[in-house]
């Protein structure tokens, strides 16, 4: 490797990868190898490399590497083309099912009866009921016990000072035995039929109320249906990923950490009762669609 210290003949672009990199090399034509490769990668050219044998050879080396890489990946990927995800999925889910997050208990009868169903199980039934309505896909489904009106005032007053566990136990002890449901749905749009969101929301509400009553024995006080997204039934979704930067990354490695613990497991998250309730991660809510929901009162 040559180690001359002359600057490159042309001024470097904003981010030369290794102007001061000891692995870099000044080609006999006066250009840095890193620059020649960066130009090649980004497709920028001032015509020099077409006539310069040194630059051409440097580029050929890179091409050769890329050919070899393709060979490497073809070899490695061959089995992956038909990768059977079932065994891996099974292993993951076997462990997940031992670490369920069942949500909060919901009363199946007013006090002093002591019959409960867990929120996650109830939500699955209600989502399935909502999806009986054609053109509907169910997303978020939160179900909360309806507090007893007589105690609601004091509960609201105190709630800021009590943690959720206490609040949950207070709800178990009192309450009306009814629940309030908040359901987010995607409405599938078809080109032939104009959407009628209020009617759709009504139909969903009816199904949910009926399923809660008949299949679960849950008595609903309110069922709020929110249309969180309108999806073209015939085409792909628009890009739902405006910013990939802000989710928790359990394995994030700051480069500065020389001794990361490869087996570091994150603490289990906070209880689902306290988890934030996104309407739909990454969902695009078209103008006017987000709140075209119905808000209804069962019974």
């Amino acid at each position: 490797m040559t180690s001359r210290i002359h600057p490159p003949a042309s001024p470097p672009p904003p981010e030369p990868p290794g102007a001061s990199d000891p692995d870099d090399e000044l080609l006999p034509c006066g250009r840095l190898l890193s620059q020649v490769w960066a130009d090649r990668e980004e497709g920028t050219s001032d015509g020099h490399e077409r006539t310069c044998p040194h630059c051409r050879r440097a580029v050929e080396e890179l091409d050769r590497l890329e050919t070899a890489v393709r060979g490497l990946h073809d070899a490695a990927d061959d089995p992956a083309a038909s990768y059977d995800a079932a065994p891996l999925t099974q292993r993951v889910m076997d462990i997940v099912r031992m670490e369920l997050r069942p949500g909060r208990p919901l009363p199946l009868a007013p006090p002093p009866e002591d019959l409960w169903i867990m929120e996650t199980a109830a939500a699955r039934t209600l989502r399935a009921a909502a999806e009986q309505v054609p053109g509907v896909r169910a997303g978020s489904c939160r179900i909360a016990p309806e507090p007893d009106p007589a105690e609601r005032d004091s509960a609201e007053r105190d709630s800021a000072e009590r943690d959720s566990a206490e609040r949950d136990s207070a709800e178990r002890d009192s309450g009306t035995g009814r629940v309030s449901v908040r359901l987010g749905i995607q409405a599938l749009l078809s080109a032939s039929e104009p959407p009628d969101l209020p009617r759709l929301a009504d139909a969903v509400r009816l199904r949910v109320e009926r399923a809660a009553d008949r299949h679960l024995g849950l008595r609903t006080a309110t069922v709020d249906v929110h249309v969180t997204d309108l999806v073209d039934a015939d085409g792909p979704d628009p890009d739902p990923d405006p910013d990939p930067d802000r989710n928790p990354d359990p394995d994030r490695n700051p480069d500065s950490n020389p001794n990361p613990d490869p087996d570091r497991n994150p603490e289990p998250g906070p209880g689902p009762a306290d988890a934030p309730v996104p309407d739909a991660p990454g969902a695009n809510v078209p103008d006017g669609a987000g709140n075209s929901s119905g808000k209804g009162t069962g019974r």
Binding site: P240, P244, N247, P248, P250, P266, P270, P276, A280, P281
Partner: peptide
């Protein structure tokens, strides 16, 4: 990675896919 994701999901805010 999947197990780690399951445990972290309650904090997932949907900022990325």
């Amino acid at each position: 990675a999947f197990l780690s994701a399951w445990r972290k999901l309650p904090e997932f805010r949907g900022d990325s896919a």
